[in-house]
Design a binder for these strands. Structure first.
Lengths: 212, 212, 212, 212
DNA sequence: TATGAATGAGGCTTCATTCAT
DNA sequence: CATGAATGAAGCCTCATTCAT
């Protein structure tokens, strides 16, 4: 039942989603749905809260695991994990995306700030950890970098589900190509964030410098 | 008359936009609107085509002007000009943004690929020009870079109109702060794209030389 | 169309009135009704305003005509005219009555104060005119008397349309009986209940003293 | 439990009252309510019967007490006691009031005639007792007088709970003012409106004489 | 050509009542 | 006996579109 509702909201957005369609597909009485959730908005809020809860675990796993890795590897891992999550939950991702741009989404401010705060904090901490490890430029503003990362990742996740947004880049293509493109995006970002190796060779760390 | 229609579509999206509201505000006959445009979709297509035509001139001016400047300066200029454009045409920008994520927008594929092709081509050429000038790393993939630039710019333009998306970064704040934040975003991108300056020299030229 | 709406509201009250029933009886599309009046409340407000306008003329005619008559005669004439009006417009009267006691009637406060102000002012002036003519006790408080008159008339008008409220008095009976009962009510108000202590006959004024 | 139901019916009338709201406020199972009372109408009938039973004792007390008092004093006492009762049981009074004008109240005819018969009989006997005491005009028709008394009292009791109906008279004001206004109403009924022709005195008996 | 009344499907929501647990 | 999920009709209202004037 929740699955069908997810689908409806993701496919049509909030306003265009139809309670009639949902109950029609589920073959239940319209009143039943309202007995559970009170209103269309209540149903949506419930779905969204569940989604937020569900999304936390994998993100946390990424953040807390492999903390010793240099920043570029971690960023690639985050991109890969996020991509997998969005592909596994296309409806959920679709709802989130819609909410970002659709100002009359109900509860938009509430739900969005909740999610965005978590996300941006997550990226900021990732940057700061990298700075402590000397794998990120010390003079990089974490907030700015987090913004760029989030924008790029968001667009990539959207593009991989929508050929028209992919525009030939390859994110909407087969898994191998997608993985390569995601890595390339992360790499492009890193070559800016990473400490510039300067003269003497950048010995052990191994990653992230372009040309010797 | 078209202004009010723009506004309606930008404020409510396609489906949620109401012909009734439009004619109500304009105080014209509902029948007239349908005689001109045939249908809601016809009206929207007309509006969008006008918008695309209108947007071309300023973008072309940015592309064709100051081609001699080093890449970072040009990128900042593009960001500034785009920001000004989005602020000057919030409704137009709103329609475009919605169309990006709302899959059931009519004509979405047609209109969007038209716009995106122009935009991405524009950024790709910008990169390639920079590479020719040696102010951009030669081994940077132009398509990847264009994708990142577009994602960041798109998010920035959205954030500057929506405090909840700005999340304290300052894009939705006063003009000076906004300008500084936009420059910081461009700079963060550049320090990744540009040739890494290495040790010694050229502290004056700022950036845009590779590494020795 | 307005007639059917009057009927629906009068028979069922505001909340219980059904737009579906109205359009069903009229055999028109539901949308049409909403195009005219915007909402159920809008329809009701329109009906009520029309009714208020319609009621003013006859009431004014009563007030302004026969001003020379002694008070008791005038009061009886007012009762008779009001009774005729309520019988001629049973739906209108029904709506007004409902609104008096049904607190969640929309626009209740607005519409009611408008009507009540007119009504009570009318009765107060009637009393004051009687006092100037020496056909009403000089020490009678006009506001108190107006309240009593209005209460009695209101109840009488309701009773004449509802046997269960008439309770055998005869107001809901044939015209002659009704007229006699209305006169008796007016007379009872004029003379009062108490034994009039006095003595010698109440000479010229002729009317209105009980026992010599 | 019954209290909440009273409140719901009084606040919203019969049709507009919501079983859902009642069980929601009471936090009991909807099924239980239907097992006790069978239906909405059954619940209402039960409530109303209880109310009628409850109302009888105080009314009887008023009727049977102080039977020796002159009529005007008794009338004032009845007004005061009724006012106190309505203020103490506003919901009960609200239900009764609504039923008077709302024709589609279930059981209206049954319940109403039961109550009205009691009430009118009570007032008629009050009048007749006054006539036997020579404190009420012998030629006054008891039924007519009862009707007027009931109409006035009913309106007063309604007005004291509803400022918009009070219309500045003062019944909805503080207890002292209310008491004074109630007395004034009773007095106006007793004395009548007309100039009482007589002359000299009986100023000591307090009321029951018009003007000296 | 311009009008705007008429349409009727569809929108979300509330409701009293039932009945399997 | 108590529960509360399930029901589906009915509620008000909005909508894009048509068409006779």
């Amino acid at each position: 039942m929740l699955d069908e509702s997810y689908r409806e909201f993701a496919e049509h957005g909030y306003h265009q989603a139809s309670i009639n369609r949902i109950v029609g597909r589920l073959d239940i009485a319209k009143g039943s749905l309202f007995q559970y959730f009170g209103s269309k908005e209540g149903l949506f809020a419930h779905l969204f809260q569940r989604a937020v809860d569900e999304i936390k675990a994998p993100l946390r796993a990424i953040r807390d695991g492999q903390t010793g890795e240099p920043f570029p590897q971690r960023l690639k891992r985050v991109f890969a994990a996020s991509s997998a999550f969005a592909l596994a939950h296309p409806f959920l991702w679709g709802i989130y995306r819609r909410m970002l741009t659709q100002e009359d989404f109900p509860l938009r401010a509430t739900l969005l700030s909740q999610v965005r705060a978590e996300t941006l904090t997550f990226f900021r901490e990732l940057i700061e950890l990298g700075q402590n490890q000397d794998s990120v430029r010390a003079d990089l503003d974490p907030a700015t970098a987090a913004f760029v990362i989030e924008a790029t990742l968001d667009r990539a996740l959207t593009a991989q589900l929508s050929p028209v947004l992919d525009a030939g880049l390859g994110l909407a293509s087969d898994p191998q190509t997608r993985q390569a493109r995601l890595d390339a995006l992360a790499e492009a970002l890193c070559l800016g964030f990473s400490v510039c190796p300067t003269v003497h060779p950048a010995p052990s760390t191994a990653k992230g410098d372009a040309n010797a």
